[in-house]
């Protein structure tokens, strides 16, 4: 496979995942704004932080208003991580690697793009927001479904999956980075109602409320949430899950390549040294420091994959 094609696949799926994650963050932000009367517009700051675009937003807006924040995250083309920008970038990469995709995947991607362009052509009113977000997530899910249902399990698939899980791990880590203080052990055994809302926000922003309740019941607190998001190997958005997936994809690629790449070594180290202990070890290390470390290692891993597989000259 061409290095350029591997690169295109990797980024196509990173952007698809990003579109979905940003849509989910908007949903979460909106949900809090609706359920907390005292919140005002302040809840949108951490949402923008989690989306990694608070600074850029600040360059264009003097104040943080809800409408402006939603518009920025949803459809602002100057925000490279907005849902619209991400879907456009995914589709642009899909065009670049058109020959590597099945007809079904390409059509699903192209129709996701066409629909996003249509429904995001104008500002989306509050009333339409839930259905617009729903449609967008359905559209990107269709691409994922077609990917699973029609693509050969070969190196094309491996690069697509690595893009997905690197972006997802990065997203989960950024949410933890912004909200880590909510999860720190507190002297009180039971959290305040404010804490409860914050915890719920975290779980919502990684679509994990249902799974968490199923696993831990209603009474569990921050320690379990942290463990769920970082170490749980069954939770499809946890760091441990994503990193394991990346390791597996790299292992699939290995036989075709003459020597094990450096990325394989790096992912093994990342998993072994940081994701095989229990949550107490993470708290001992310092939750914030741990999350920062994860973000660094993930970005380093991404760069190593690019180098190992000759994404660029």
């Amino acid at each position: 496979m061409l290095g350029k094609t591997a690169n295109g696949l990797f980024w196509m799926y990173r952007y698809l995942e990003r579109a979905e994650n940003t849509a989910r963050l908007i949903e979460t932000g909106q949900r809090i704004a609706l359920t907390r009367l005292d919140a005002g517009d302040s809840e949108w700051r951490p949402v923008l932080q989690s989306a990694g675009s608070l600074d850029q937003f600040g360059l264009r807006h003097d104040e943080l208003h809800k409408d402006a924040a939603i518009d920025w995250l949803l459809r602002d083309r100057t925000n490279p991580s907005s849902v619209l920008s991400s879907i456009e970038a995914a589709r642009q990469n899909a065009r670049l690697v058109r020959t590597a995709l099945t007809h079904e995947v390409w059509e699903a991607t192209n129709s996701a793009y066409m629909q996003a362009r249509d429904i995001l052509a104008r500002k989306v009113g509050e009333r339409d927001l839930p259905s617009v977000l729903g449609t967008l997530r359905q559209r990107t899910s269709l691409v994922r479904g077609m990917t699973h249902g029609t693509m050969l399990r070969n190196e094309i698939y491996n690069f697509a999956r690595m893009g997905t899980f690197l972006e997802r791990a990065d997203n989960t880590a950024r949410i933890l980075d912004v909200k880590y203080y909510v999860l720190l052990p507190s002297a009180k055994a039971v959290g305040t109602s404010l804490d409860n809302v914050q915890w719920e926000t975290i779980l919502r922003s990684v679509s994990a409320r249902g799974g968490f309740r199923m696993e831990y019941g209603a009474a569990a607190g921050p320690r379990e949430i942290a463990s769920f998001l970082i170490l749980d190997r069954r939770m499809p958005r946890s760091l441990a899950f994503c990193v394991r997936k990346i390791r597996e994809q790299l292992a699939h690629l290995a036989p075709g390549h003459r020597k094990p790449g450096k990325a394989q070594g790096k992912v093994a180290h990342l998993e072994h040294a940081y994701l095989t202990y229990d949550i107490d070890a993470v708290f001992d290390y310092g939750l914030h420091e741990f999350v920062q470390k994860m973000l660094d290692l993930l970005s380093d891993l991404s760069a190593q994959i690019e180098a190992d597989f000759r994404f660029y000259e």
Partner: peptide, 23 residues
């Protein structure tokens, strides 16, 4: 067959070669 652009190709040892993930 592969769809290549100029920057995927280079001349090496009297041949034109494309940059793949395996060299």
């Amino acid at each position: 067959v592969e769809l290549v652009e100029g920057h995927d190709l280079r001349v090496m040892g009297g041949r034109v070669a494309m940059r793949t993930t395996q060299g």
